[in-house]
């Protein structure tokens, strides 16, 4: 993907200025209160056997901004994502989206409320065409009810409206040439794009992206980055998990750092990157090295710890 398809990469746009302005007075502390939170989580704890995967005291996600959730592997980011979106249940804790309490709300209802997620391992519907993948994303479809399904005149009109919308999104995400192909034939990066476009079919207010850049080639990364930014320009809120620090620094307005299941730091990207707690979380004492290069070591150590923990558990 050529870089010129990405015009807004470097320069600040009005939306991003506004977003950052709203966060100016927010404390740079874990669990800091936000002026206009769209998502509030409190006391979320999730244990797998003896291992506490997530133990978040308090977190608020600001409306209309791009928030990054970072942390070393095994920090509990994906588990936290699963908990917030209803794909997993915490042992305790409360959380709310737009003021609606979400504990015991199943995943599909969370999505209907306007909080739509993507997955770390991209989930496209392989043996459906790209356009069918998009159509599934639309909500409130009359034809999805069993009783009306057999009578096409009841849903034909709505289907056409959804198709127009889907085509627009495919155009925007540069997938229109693949419209009639099976989604299973797309490349990894195209799948990420399709997944994001499909999530937009539901008009979500909060888009949750789990490692949107993982496994995407550098050229396509620039394009994806632009798309994430464009979500904010449309007035949507974004929460994403990411490992690529350059990317985080580039597009996020606010960064939340998790380590060993807890939120250890919060703040604007530049501040957080130099925060001692973050450096400790990632590197221990080797903080003079580049973050992303040293990550590998951390990952291995974390993984080892996890295996050990599970084995002790198995033996007990």
């Amino acid at each position: 993907m050529p870089a010129e398809t990405e015009p807004s990469l470097a320069k600040a746009t009005p939306r991003s200025d506004a977003a950052r302005a709203a966060l100016v007075d927010v404390e740079h502390e874990p669990g800091a209160k936000k002026p206009d939170p769209i998502l509030v989580a409190h006391g979320i704890r999730r244990q797998f056997g003896g291992l506490t995967a997530v133990d978040v005291e308090h977190v608020e996600i600001q409306r209309g901004v791009i928030t990054a959730l970072i942390g070393p592997n095994g920090a509990g980011k994906t588990t936290f994502f699963n908990l917030l979106t209803g794909f997993d249940r915490p042992n305790e804790g409360t959380w709310s989206f737009k003021g609606t309490t979400l504990d015991k709300v199943p995943a599909y209802k969370v999505a209907r409320l306007g909080m739509v997620r993507t997955f770390q391992l991209t989930k496209v519907l392989s043996r459906l065409t790209v356009i069918e993948n998009m159509r599934v994303g639309a909500t409130d479809q009359r034809g999805e009810g069993l009783l009306s399904a057999m009578f096409s005149w009841l849903w034909r009109g709505q289907e056409e409206t959804n198709t127009v919308k889907a085509d627009e999104l495919l155009e925007r995400f540069l997938l229109h040439k693949k419209r009639e192909d099976f989604a299973g034939s797309l490349s990894g990066g195209q799948r990420k794009l399709l997944e994001m476009a499909r999530a937009l079919m539901a008009d979500p207010e909060l888009v949750m992206l789990d490692e949107p850049m993982a496994g995407v080639n550098p050229a396509l990364k620039q394009s994806l980055l632009g798309h994430v930014k464009s979500l904010r320009e449309e007035g949507r809120s974004v929460l994403f998990v990411e490992h690529d620090m350059d990317m985080v620094r580039d597009i996020s307005d606010w960064v939340i750092v998790m380590a060993q299941g807890k939120v250890v730091a919060e703040g604007p990207p530049d501040r957080v990157m130099s925060d001692q707690r973050v450096i400790d979380a990632y590197l221990g004492s080797h903080h003079d090295q580049d973050l992303s290069e040293d990550m590998e070591e951390t990952i291995l150590a974390e993984a080892q710890a996890e295996i050990d923990a599970e084995h002790t558990e198995e033996k007990s």
Binding site: T85, F87, A107, Y108, K109, A111, R112, V116, R117, T118, F119, K123, V124, L125, S126, R127, L128, E132, N133, R135, V136, G137, T139, Q141, R142, G143, E144, G145, L146, A149, M150, S152, W155, E159, E195, R198, A199, M201, A202
Partner: peptide, 26 residues
């Protein structure tokens, strides 16, 4: 009639990946 409808499309989507379908509000 059922399988050409959006209802049938949801079924086929579930066959492919049910978590994806869940994340789309079904």
């Amino acid at each position: 009639l059922l399988m050409r409808s959006p209802w049938g499309r949801v079924l086929k989507s579930i066959r492919e990946d049910e978590n994806a379908v869940r994340s789309l509000g079904k």
